[in-house]
C-alpha cells in the first residue's frame, strides 16, 4: 500500500552525531518534499554521508530524529525502510553474485511479492540499462555498471523517497548524464535527496541545495538564491569599439544607481551590479542614447564552484555580505 504522495518526504530534525570527541554532524534539520530533488553538497568530511546514514537508520544519531514518509526511522525501522531506496557511498554490492541473482535477493529482502517480481525486474533492467550484464557476476563489471546495479537495487521497489550518496561518482560523462536523466525522470513523484561534490550536477538535476560545512547546514535554498551569493551576480562584461573606449567610462558612469563599480582594462569593462539585478538592459539603453558602439555585452555567469569555495573557506566574506 503506498500512502498519498504528500506524506512522502524525507525529514531530519536536529540530527547530531559525535564519534568520541569529534562532532561530525551538528543539529541538522531539513526536509525534502515530493517532487523535489535536493542536492546535498559540502566539502569532503563535512558530514554528508554521516547525515544520510542517520536518515536511513544505519547510524543512530546522538541527538535528533529522522523520518521517511512520516515514519520515524528508529522507532519503526522496518516500515520506514520499506518506503525509501538508498544507494550508499561507493556503491557496495555482493560481488560474487550475478546482477539478476543480486536483484532477486534485494527484491526478497524488500518483500516484493513474487507476482510483482518479474515486472519489477524487467522495469529496473530497462531503466538502468542492465540488459547486457544481466547474467554477469557483479565483481567483473565496470564501475559504471556497478553504479547502475546500485541504483537498480535502490529503485526496485519503486520507493517514494530516494537517498543517493554520490550517485555519479566514478562515472564517465555519458554515464553521468544517464544517471541524471534517470533522476530527472523519477523526480516528478518522489522526494529525492542526493549528495554530490560535483556542482554541475546541482544545475542538471536539483531544484534546491543544502550546503553542509563542518557538520552544520550553511545554507538551504534554491539554486538561484545560491547563485545570487556570487559577488558578480547580475554584472556585465562589455567590450566597446576602441575609438569609444575613453568616452564609455563617463557614459557608464550614469548607471551609478545600478552599478557599484566599474573595472576597466583597455576596451573591456566589467560593470558590477549594485543589488544583484541584471544590469545588461540598462547598459544597452544608455549606450544606445550615447551612440556607443558595443562589440560585446555578456552577463557574467556566476559559477557555483566559486560560491561553494568562498562559502566553505574559513572566514567567508560572502556570508558577511549577505548577512
Amino acid at each position: 500500500m503506498s500512502a498519498p504522495h504528500s506524506t512522502a518526504r524525507i525529514e531530519a530534525n536536529g540530527l547530531s552525531k559525535s564519534f568520541g570527541e569529534i562532532q561530525a554532524v551538528r543539529n541538522v534539520s531539513f526536509s525534502v518534499n515530493p517532487g523535489e530533488v535536493v542536492g546535498f553538497i559540502g566539502p569532503n568530511g563535512a558530514g554528508k554521508s554521516t547525515t544520510l546514514r542517520m536518515l536511513t537508520g544505519f547510524l543512530r544519531p546522538s541527538e535528533g530524529s529522522a523520518s521517511i514518509a512520516g515514519i520515524d526511522v528508529l522507532k519503526h525501522p522496518i516500515q520506514a525502510r520499506l518506503r525509501f531506496g538508498y544507494l550508499p557511498e561507493t556503491g557496495p554490492l555482493y560481488g560474487e553474485m550475478t546482477v539478476v541473482e543480486f536483484l532477486r535477493f534485494v527484491a526478497g529482502a524488500r518483500r516484493i511479492r513474487s507476482v510483482e517480481l518479474d515486472g519489477d525486474l524487467i522495469r529496473v533492467r530497462k531503466v538502468c540499462h542492465l540488459e547486457k550484464v544481466w547474467h554477469q557476476t557483479i565483481e567483473t563489471l565496470s564501475k559504471g555498471y556497478r553504479q547502475r546495479v546500485g541504483l537498480a537495487q535502490a529503485i526496485i521497489h519503486d520507493p517514494d523517497c530516494l537517498i543517493l550518496d554520490e550517485p555519479t561518482d566514478g562515472l564517465d560523462p555519458n554515464q553521468k548524464q544517464e544517471v541524471r536523466d534517470l533522476v530527472n525522470e523519477m523526480a516528478a513523484e518522489k522526494a529525492i535527496l542526493l549528495s554530490t561534490h560535483i556542482l554541475e550536477e546541482l544545475e542538471a538535476v536539483c531544484s534546491r541545495v543544502i550546503l553542509l560545512h563542518q557538520g552544520e547546514i550553511l545554507l538551504d535554498e534554491s539554486l538561484e538564491a545560491m547563485r545570487k551569493r556570487h559577488p558578480l551576480f547580475g554584472s556585465v562584461k562589455i567590450r566597446v569599439a576602441p575609438a569609444d573606449a575613453d568616452r564609455s567610462l563617463s557614459v557608464f558612469g550614469k548607471l551609478e544607481p545600478f552599478v557599484e563599480r566599474i573595472d576597466r582594462q583597455g576596451d573591456h569593462f566589467l560593470l558590477r551590479s549594485r543589488d544583484k539585478r541584471n544590469v545588461s538592459d540598462a547598459v544597452l539603453a544608455v549606450s544606445k542614447d550615447a551612440g556607443l558602439a558595443l562589440l560585446e555585452v555578456a552577463p557574467v555567469i556566476p559559477r557555483l564552484e566559486e560560491v561553494f569555495q568562498e562559502l566553505t573557506r574559513p572566514q567567508s566574506k560572502f556570508i558577511e555580505e549577505q548577512g
Binding site: 522496518i78 520499506l82 538508498y86 550508499p88 554490492l93 555482493y94 534485494v106 524488500r110 537495487q153
Partner: peptide
C-alpha cells in the same frame, strides 16, 4: 565491502 550498509537498510 560496505554491504552491511545495504543489508541493514533493507526492511529486515
Amino acid at each position: 565491502s560496505g554491504t552491511l550498509e545495504l543489508l541493514l537498510t533493507y526492511p529486515v
